[in-house]
């Protein structure tokens, strides 16, 4: 089902999956190019969650997917605000929201009133910025108002905001970090699979999605008590 959500900057679309009651897992795709590489996978994951009786939502963030808003006009804070708008939309339905952040998507839920945060291979802002600089190839001029990186026109302010951004991790609400077995950084759980977000040709991995759907469904149910 296609639904819409409001935020201070306007209205955007989101896909809804699963039952019309109970908690909703709200997915945040990574920023920029990696969003295209993980969208199909995220849809598969949310469908499998729905098969497990768990509702899900996949919003278009402003400047992403079908959004009519130009990415270059957005700050990082504005995108976080929009994700907060998605979560508010779920809360208005009288349902609890759990954030599912993929890679840099894990940076978007900081201001959202989520009951918990489940992060897949979270990437912090400094690592993302480093990668963007590598993809860009040459340093961009300090005076540039926007920078084109792999086909995305990004505001220079947003790039500055990325530096030092960390996934939100406070002890009051539960957080679970899941990483691939090939990733040596700290995690609560590791799963076998390849990093789809690195592939220039978008790919899917239903077996990995099924493993993650099992993990998310069990974790959300445990959080809900």
């Amino acid at each position: 089902m296609i639904d819409r959500y409001d935020w201070a900057g306007g209205q955007e679309a989101m896909l809804r999956f699963g039952p019309s009651n109970g908690p909703v897992v709200v997915a945040a795709l990574p920023l920029f190019e990696e969003a295209n590489r993980t969208r199909t996978f995220a849809v598969t994951l949310l469908r499998l969650l729905a098969e497990r009786g768990m509702a899900g939502a996949l919003p278009d963030m402003p400047g992403q997917g079908e959004s009519l808003m130009a990415l270059e006009t957005l700050s990082f804070l504005r995108i976080q605000e929009a994700f907060g708008g998605v979560v508010d939309h779920i809360l208005d339905e009288g349902r609890a929201a759990y954030a599912l952040g993929i890679r840099s998507g894990a940076l978007l839920d900081a201001h959202a009133l989520a009951s918990g945060r489940w992060h897949l291979a979270p990437q912090d802002g400094s690592d993302l910025l480093r990668e963007l600089k590598r993809v860009h190839g040459s340093p961009w001029p300090a005076s540039a108002a926007r920078v084109e990186i792999a086909g995305n026109l990004i505001s220079a302010d947003l790039l500055v905001e990325l530096e030092g951004k960390q996934p939100f991790a406070e002890s009051v609400t539960p957080r679970r970090v899941v990483r691939l077995e090939s990733d040596p950084r700290p995690a609560d759980h590791q799963v076998p699979g390849a990093p789809l977000w690195r592939r220039s040709d978008p790919d899917n991995d239903p077996a990995l999605a099924a493993l993650l759907a099992d993990d998310i469904a069990a974790w959300v149910r445990a959080c809900e008590g």
Binding site: E131, V135, P195, R198
Partner: peptide, 10 residues
């Protein structure tokens, strides 16, 4: 860029 970054991570 992807190969180099993934090598760094792993």
């Amino acid at each position: 860029a992807g190969v180099l970054t993934e090598l760094e991570d792993r």
